[in-house]
Design a protein around this nucleic acid. Sequence first.
RNA 1: GUGGAUGUAGCUCAAUCGGUAGAGCACCAGAUUGUGGUUCUGGGUGUCGUGGGUUCGAUCCCCAUCAUCCACC
Length: 365
Amino acid sequence: MKVDLPTAGFTLEIERVLGRARAGWLHTPRGSIPLPVFMPVGTQGTVKAMTPGELEAAPLDARIILGNTYHLYLRPGLDIIGGAGGLHRFAAWDRPILTDSGGFQVFSLAGINKIDDDGVTFQSHIDGSRHRLTPEVSLHIQGVLGSDIAMAFDQCPAGDAPPPDQERALRRTTAWAARSAAVVRPPGQALFGIVQGGTDLERRARHAAEIVPIGFDGHAIGGLSVGEPIPEMYRVLDGFAHTLPADRPRYLMGVGTPADLEHGVMAGVDMFDCVMPTRNARNGNLFTSQGRVVIGNAKHKQDYGPLDPECPCTTCTRHSRAYLRHLYNAKEILAARLATLHNLTFYARHMRQLREKILQEGQPV
RNA sequence: GUGGAUGUAGCUCAAUCGGUAGAGCACCAGAUUGUGGUUCUGGGUGUCGUGGGUUCGAUCCCCAUCAUCCACC
């Protein structure tokens, strides 16, 4: 199956399916992205600790990274990035970029914020200055950033919010989605809509029925992994992900652990992003074929073997656990770099393996 | 050599008017899900310098001793 998406230059190609799992490509003007894919998070115009060259190099070979509207708008600001000619040029990254709308950060990071039907007024977590974000402003910012995939401005309610608040967030997110879609975008920028609804499948279905007709290039599942029990998240994925249109990419926002990704893929999700591999790397928590490794643990003090004997990344082929532990305990910058390179490579390989499994065992579409 | 002070956790220091001791950091272990290089959660790891004495009981009181620091000769 190969279908052109509404935005010119974007094509979704699904080669094979295994149950609900899909393997294929998302073709964009800046390059093709194998699906399913994990997208490293580069909130502030950088995947922390990595150079663009390191992200591109095999075996990591990141095909798309994230940037964040909220952070980049507050710092360094649109004049700086716009003056550079957009985020790709500013950050020296030529491959695709997906930008989050800033909605999540406003609710999770910003200070006092007043939400009304038009948008959100919030205070910067950096200097306390007041700003206002609306669907139009968010899309304008994402337009100046020049991302390849922009996200609709949404409201992500707290997982434990009472039903009336959930419903109001759904209504706002629907209205904001339509307003986001109405903003004229730069050529070559796709737009994804976001479905909310918490862990209530009925609410999810109802909201999807409002979001899908707007005509987005892809659909995101928002509002998961925000504190709900993992089984709850899996229940929603199993009952909802596959109901999103098959001819559009499906993106699960902010998830997750390697096991979560596998579950998501099997439920029909194509794209993921999460801070976990990069943040955990900086905190000495590494993912390996033998499970998690807390590199600072005393038991690695004299372990001169590789972090993960099955991993082809430089960290594993060239360095020992003992050395990595030393770097981590000494708070050396290289510790964050080597750990991040490894965790991202682990995630990339994890997704590649899932993709291979679907391609080999699945049915053609 | 004389006088004085201080010796308590790996470090810096508390406390106990006599009932076997805590804090910060460090250390050990776990967490981190649309990123504030964070943060959070749990763990005390101790011959209270050493040896005696008094006492039902001493880290605390007494004696000796060792170490370190300060002042004086």
